[in-house]
């Protein structure tokens, strides 16, 4: 099938549906988890973006917010949980510990320098911990990324292997 106006519009419609109902998985590891909980509470409401349903199980979630330091002992579990999520799935790395190791990069013999060593990351949110507004901006950036995906126009395979 070639590109055309019909497929573009259908693509946009499907992406609109998917980006406005991202269901995050509760993967709070450390201090950033508290800021994630505060973002979901009533002052900085995450429900209005459609992301209010925090699923505890990875089978039903499509966004994994890695909030906190990933240690070597935990890294295998992060990978297992990510593999249990169903496609299409996205990973948002929250906080400087999940981005590149955070304040523990120098002498942290047990700290993984960034969660990107084990799972592929879509959006990075810097901060230690990032403010709730920063996390909301990260989710909006992810929504922009999802809006530009070509579902029907090009056969998509993400995250092979």
């Amino acid at each position: 099938m070639q590109d055309g106006i019909v497929l573009t519009k259908v693509d946009e419609f499907l992406s609109w549906g998917r980006k406005n109902s991202l269901w995050p998985m509760t993967f709070g590891l450390a201090c950033c988890a508290i800021e994630m909980m505060a973002t979901g509470a009533n002052k900085y409401d995450l429900e209005r973006f459609g992301c209010g349903a925090f699923m505890a199980t990875p089978r039903r979630a499509d966004l994994m917010i890695v909030a906190g330091t990933v240690t070597l002992k935990m890294a295998t579990r992060v990978r297992t949980l990510w593999e249990q999520m169903a496609e299409p799935k996205y990973v948002l790395s929250m906080g400087s510990c999940a981005n590149k190791g955070g304040p523990y990069w120098q002498h942290g013999y047990h700290v993984l320098k960034g969660v990107e060593e084990v799972v592929p990351v879509d959006v990075y949110v810097p901060g230690c911990p990032p403010r709730p507004e920063a996390l909301i901006e990260g989710i909006m950036t992810l929504q922009k990324k999802i809006a530009s995906e070509r579902l029907l126009r090009k056969k998509w395979i993400k995250h092979v292997g």
Binding site: L29, M74, Y104, Y109
Partner: peptide, 8 residues
Amino acid sequence: YLHRCMEK
């Protein structure tokens, strides 16, 4: 699972 080597 959150041992961040603070004492080191």
